Simulated scan of single mutants.
Amino acid sequence: MSSARISRRAALALGGSSLAVADGTHGLARPAVAQSGAFPSRPVRMLVPWAPGGTTDVQMRALCDAASKRLGQPVVVENKSGAGGILGAQALLNERPDGYALAQMPISVFRYPAMSSRPPFDPVADFTYVVHLTGYLFGVVVRAESPWKTFEEFLAHAKRSPGKVNYGTPGAGTSLHITMEQIAEKRGIDWTHVPFRGFSDNLQALLGGQTDALADSSGWAQLVEDGRLRLLVTWTEERAKRFPQVPTLRETGIDIVSASPYGLAGPKGMDPGVVKVLHDAFKEALHDPSHTAVLDRYDMPIMYKNSADYTVFARQMAKEEAEMVKKLGLKA
């Protein structure tokens, strides 16, 4: 494992990677075909831009299994981890808009174009938004034997030890990375970010003592309950139901809420009939008991939006991320 010391502004600027744009207007399905039940006639590929075994991967596999029952065809997960979660969207740009390729769309997809003087893609116009799903419970955990009992103690130690404290996240430019750097900026802390390709690598580095803390979604929950890890803070609006004794960032005096909500999208130009078939199947899957059990396990709320509302939300997110990029002076 290697880590690189970078400036705060440089760290915040790593919000994506170069993306190639394909036209993606060919191969449209006809509405009558979609509505007649002929779609899908083969497996649907779901691009998950995170490593196997992490919170998103587990949640998406449960969702895809439930959706497969509604669609009558397998929904097959393909992991494309790295680059802060934008590789699924990148792959969509070269896919046919026939409904057989979808991707989970993290917030980093909306962030990168605002950081470039020549944006390689438009996060609203270059994708078809199908259904919005959920958001994360984010938090910072340390090993149970660590000396820090509270987040304030951890921050105080980091401030006293510039450059000596490191933390892991699932990648540069993710909401977790940017929020940790915003925390450091607010408290005058100089610490080192260690990006990983997914939760499993991040967790192993923490347990093995290579990192001091882990900032990630709630794949850590069971280890916290088992006493192997200590949860110092969550980033939710209110305290997590599963961990009511743990304060939020706002309660520690840091006015940040971060849940990184996400949904599913396909290539631009998808036929409305195909979109409806997919939306209906995944909406039902979202509420399937086998899937909601996973959401409950990770304290992930249902944040459903239909295709039209999700498209509006995507436009809003692109605007808000652009404002954040401008405020922080971030550049690709």
Rank of each mutant, 00 (worst) to 15 (best):
S3L: 15
V294E: 13
D23W: 12
L328N: 02
T134W: 05
L176I: 03
A13L: 00
E237R: 14
G266E: 10
G72R: 08
A10N: 14
G266M: 08
A125T: 08
K241N: 00
S258A: 12
D65C: 00
H26Q: 13
L137S: 04
K241M: 08
Q182Y: 04
G198E: 04
G16M: 03
M317L: 14
E95Y: 03
G227S: 06
V312Y: 02
S218A: 15
A62D: 08
A34C: 09
F127N: 02
V130A: 04
T169I: 00
P123A: 06
R45D: 10
L214C: 04
A51C: 09
R160W: 07
R45C: 01
Q35T: 00
A293Y: 01
T56A: 14
D23A: 13
V142I: 05
M1Q: 11
A10F: 00
R187G: 01
A67T: 08
L155M: 13
A213G: 03
Y136S: 10
D226I: 06
S200P: 00
K159L: 09
K276T: 15
L87K: 11
S260E: 13
P301I: 05
A103G: 09
G85C: 04
H279W: 13
G27R: 07
T252N: 12
P244E: 14
D299A: 05
G99M: 04
F313E: 14
T248S: 10
E152Q: 15
F110S: 09
R9F: 13
W220T: 08
S116M: 10
F154V: 07
L87R: 09
T234C: 03
L93D: 05
G253P: 10
L203M: 13
R315C: 01
M303P: 01
D226G: 01
A38I: 02
K186N: 06
D296S: 12
F199G: 06
P123M: 02
P74D: 13
K283V: 11
V194W: 01
V44I: 10
L231W: 01
G209F: 03
P147I: 00
Q90R: 14
V109W: 07
L203F: 01
D57M: 10
V275K: 11
E320S: 14
S200F: 00
V294K: 11
F121Q: 07
K268N: 11
Y298T: 08
L214F: 06
T128V: 05
A293L: 08
N306A: 00
S108H: 08
E237Y: 11
G329S: 09
G266P: 05
V21T: 13
A103L: 12
I183A: 02
T311Q: 11
R45H: 11
I254P: 01
V224P: 03
V48T: 09
S68Y: 05
A11N: 12
K327H: 11
G209N: 02
V224E: 09
A91D: 14
G53A: 11
